[in-house]
């Protein structure tokens, strides 16, 4: 790890980031560095801005101040379209949209940036087995899936895109203990991946190489 830290920029980096929603400060002078290969657990009370941290890295929330970098490149209005391609993301309570599970999984490969990864769709059968999902699920309407099934399909979707950094937002909250263990095990067995996970689950505590705690930044201010 030490050697990597020296030769590569951090996988993700946030420096003195302050973000407001309206008049409410969600993050204030927040700092974070996650290095390649690290598995970091982000903890904090609800409303402390854990999901917002992930959104900032993805360029889905724009901070008022501070610098955000992904693999050394700034996440700004010009390069955000490129830095998003380094990141896999499983949102909290994922919305899979319309269509069958197969269509949901194939959808992102229609984007020009992902076209060359299309062969990864061959991983689907083994990933379904790995996460204890039936092959027949592929032909089911995604909207009819249970919360736990949706989460695992969203995880598979993120894995298929083969990003080097994966952001997980309560990605196992609807899973039973056995499946939580399977998911954590998958990521542990893939050491090349850098993981930043928001979770309340104990299963992730053992799995993380480091824990970062977030304190609420509530403070009313005029925007």
């Amino acid at each position: 790890m030490r050697e990597r830290e020296r030769s590569f920029p951090p996988a993700v980096e946030m420096k003195d980031v302050t973000l407001f929603y309206g008049n409410r400060a969600i993050l204030r002078d927040f700092n974070l560095e996650v290095h390649l290969g690290e598995r970091v657990l982000l903890k904090g009370p609800s409303g402390s801005g854990k999901s917002t941290v992930l959104h900032c890295l993805l360029g889905l929330a724009v901070p008022r101040e501070g610098v955000i970098r992904v693999r050394g490149e700034p996440v700004d209005s010009r390069s955000v379209w490129k830095t998003r391609l380094y990141l896999g993301y499983v949102p909290q309570e994922p919305d899979l949209g319309r269509g069958t599970v197969r269509q949901v999984l194939e959808g992102p490969f229609a984007f020009r940036a992902n076209e060359k990864l299309r062969k990864n769709l061959e991983w689907i059968p083994s990933l379904l087995r790995r996460f204890d999902l039936a092959q027949e699920l592929l032909e089911k309407q995604a909207s009819t899936l249970s919360g736990g099934e949706k989460q695992r399909v969203a995880l598979i979707g993120a894995i298929l895109l083969e990003r080097s950094v994966v952001l997980l937002d309560e990605a196992s909250s609807a899973l039973d203990e056995e499946n939580k263990r399977r998911v954590a095990e998958y990521f542990r067995e893939t050491p090349d991946l850098t993981i930043l996970a928001v979770s309340h689950d104990a299963a992730w505590e053992n799995f993380a190489t480091r824990t970062v705690s977030l304190a609420p930044a509530f403070r009313e201010e005029s925007a």
């Binding site: 993805l58 994922p94 020009r112 940036a113 992902n114 895109l161």
Partner: peptide
Amino acid sequence: KDEKLYLQSLAQGATLKE
């Protein structure tokens, strides 16, 4: 209404048009 789904497409590498 489908903000989450739209943001997910951006996160998955879609261009604005896509």
